[in-house]
């Protein structure tokens, strides 16, 4: 796990509208933070800036003491569950969960171990060979979480996946 420091984060879109205006939050290692607010207030945008999917207009995003403003998502080592899950529909549940590990070229044995451990935690054991299209909403949600927790990510971001 890691610390995340946001210093005067601002996000302005093309039309000059500030979606996120001067946010400064420190999240300590192991801390559990929930953002609550009306729709359109910038919760998702802030999460997407932390994980690197959205450019930061001004301010500093610091993870574990390192400024990550210009790092690509893959170099930030954060895990995220998307609002709409964004599962890979052409892959089985097993391969969905294994995807981040395969990208890291982990050995097959380690991948299998970690996937099975995650699936046991999330009660997905009997669905491992199924495709997301055949799962219920709750099952899809758990697959999305499985994909996040198999990794040794520095932090886990959940964008209202309920």
């Amino acid at each position: 796990m890691a610390t995340i420091e946001m210093k005067n984060i601002v996000k302005k879109y093309g039309d000059g509208f500030p979606a996120v205006n001067d946010v400064s939050i420190d999240v300590a290692d192991g801390e559990f933070l929930i953002l609550v607010g009306p729709s359109g207030c910038g919760k998702s945008t802030l999460l997407r800036m932390i994980v690197g999917l959205e450019d930061i207009t001004s301010g500093d995003m610091v993870i574990d003491g390192e400024r990550v403003n210009d790092l690509a998502p893959r170099d930030r080592n954060l895990a995220m569950v998307f609002q709409n899950y964004a599962l890979y529909p052409h892959l089985t549940v097993y391969e969905n969960i294994a995807f981040p590990l395969r990208l890291k070229k982990r050995p097959e044995k380690e991948i299998d171990e970690k996937v099975r451990q995650a699936s046991r935690t999330l009660d997905l054991d009997e669905h491992l060979e199924r495709k997301p299209g055949n799962l219920s909403g709750g099952q899809r949600q758990r697959v999305a979480m499985g994909r996040a927790i198999v990794r040794d990510a520095k932090a886990f971001l959940f964008d209202e996946p309920l």
Binding site: P73, R74, A79, F82, A86, F99, L103
Partner: peptide
């Protein structure tokens, strides 16, 4: 194809090409 597919892959550690 939902754009989130690609973003999810990038967060999972994929390059744009991957």
């Amino acid at each position: 194809i939902p754009w989130e597919m690609e973003q999810a892959a990038q967060v999972d550690g994929a390059t744009s090409w991957q």
